[in-house]
């Protein structure tokens, strides 16, 4: 019994990392109808940046986090403004093609800089755990879940109550009326992509702290974010938390029952079931 509770706990904590990743992915998808296939590689790049900052400057990843967030915010803004905006109003296929190409470029850029070998962000606490009531709480994953709750809350407050957040929501509900209010859609999109790139970077740092990674690790992260987003509902502030917890627990339990090799069956099986039964996600509203 205790073992199973620990397994479920591990799943819940894994949901934190999954959720932060999906927070970014879902924001892009919900606001711009953009499915960013380079999402995972963005996160891996952030993990490498954290690794370099730690190795070269001795900067702890948590202290580096605000800096990495800002770098990715600026980079994401420029990327959207300069490149993605050119195809965003076209059909979905064009943006898929563009972000697929972007993923390719990023992954190979990382191979060039860091080789294809597995690396990790080696902090003294990376593999340590807190112990409470006989259960093990891996420090990084526990913090990831706490961060996910805080980031979801901050994102929700920003979207709901700030002038800019309201502009982002308005644009997500219709670009034509948004333009008629005087909004500059390319800027709203650039800001949205910048913000979600910053969030993706935070997710990437957490991933790098708790897993070994290589330039090829981006793909599975994108798929994970996709499934969590579908589970929680596209474009909802709390969907990534809900979706992350569900997928985290099911993966943890499933990998014990079926063996870790078959865990993808659960991920994709779940995706299929959700798309058939409730395509709007757990928290999503019908027909957005």
């Amino acid at each position: 019994m205790h073992l199973w509770l620990q397994i479920i706990l591990n799943g819940i904590l894994q949901g934190g990392i999954l959720g932060i990743s999906a927070l970014a992915f879902s924001l892009q998808w919900g606001v711009m109808n953009l499915i960013n296939l380079a999402h995972g590689s963005f996160q891996i790049l952030a993990a490498y940046v954290a690794m370099v900052l730690l190795q070269r400057l001795g900067l702890d990843p948590f202290l580096a986090m605000p800096l990495v967030f800002l770098i990715f915010l600026a980079g994401g803004y420029l990327l959207q403004f300069g490149i993605i905006n050119r195809v965003i109003s076209g059909n979905l296929f064009m943006t898929l093609l563009l972000t697929y190409g972007l993923d390719f470029v990023l992954a190979n850029f990382m191979i060039l800089l860091f080789t294809a070998d597995y690396k990790s962000v080696n902090t003294p606490y990376a593999n340590s755990s807190w112990h409470l009531l006989g259960f093990q709480f891996p420090i990084v994953r526990t913090l990831a879940l706490i961060f996910l709750v805080i980031l979801s809350l901050l994102l929700w407050l920003f979207l709901e109550y700030s002038r800019t957040g309201r502009a982002i929501r308005a644009t997500s509900m219709g670009t034509e009326p948004a333009r008629l209010m005087g909004l500059k859609i390319p800027k709203v999109y650039a800001l949205t992509f910048g913000l979600s790139s910053g969030l993706a970077a935070i997710g990437g740092i957490f991933f790098g702290l708790s897993n070994a990674f290589s330039p090829a690790a981006g793909g599975p992260l994108t798929v994970g974010a996709f499934v969590v987003t579908i589970l929680g509902g596209v474009g909802t502030s709390w969907g990534p938390l809900v979706g992350g917890l569900i997928l985290g627990v099911l993966d943890a339990v499933g990998s014990v029952i079926l063996g870790p090799t078959y865990v993808n069956i659960i991920t994709f099986g779940l995706l299929l079931i959700i798309l058939i039964l409730r395509p709007t996600g757990v928290l999503g509203r019908a027909a957005t």
């Binding site: 309201r166 502009a167 929501r169 509900m173 219709g174 009326p177 008629l180 209010m181």
Partner: peptide
């Protein structure tokens, strides 16, 4: 009308004053 259907009435009105 093209209202922002997922927003409250008041938020819609405030969007009108966005600039």
């Amino acid at each position: 009308r093209l209202l922002f259907t997922g927003m409250s009435v008041e938020e819609n009105l405030l969007m009108g004053a966005y600039l």
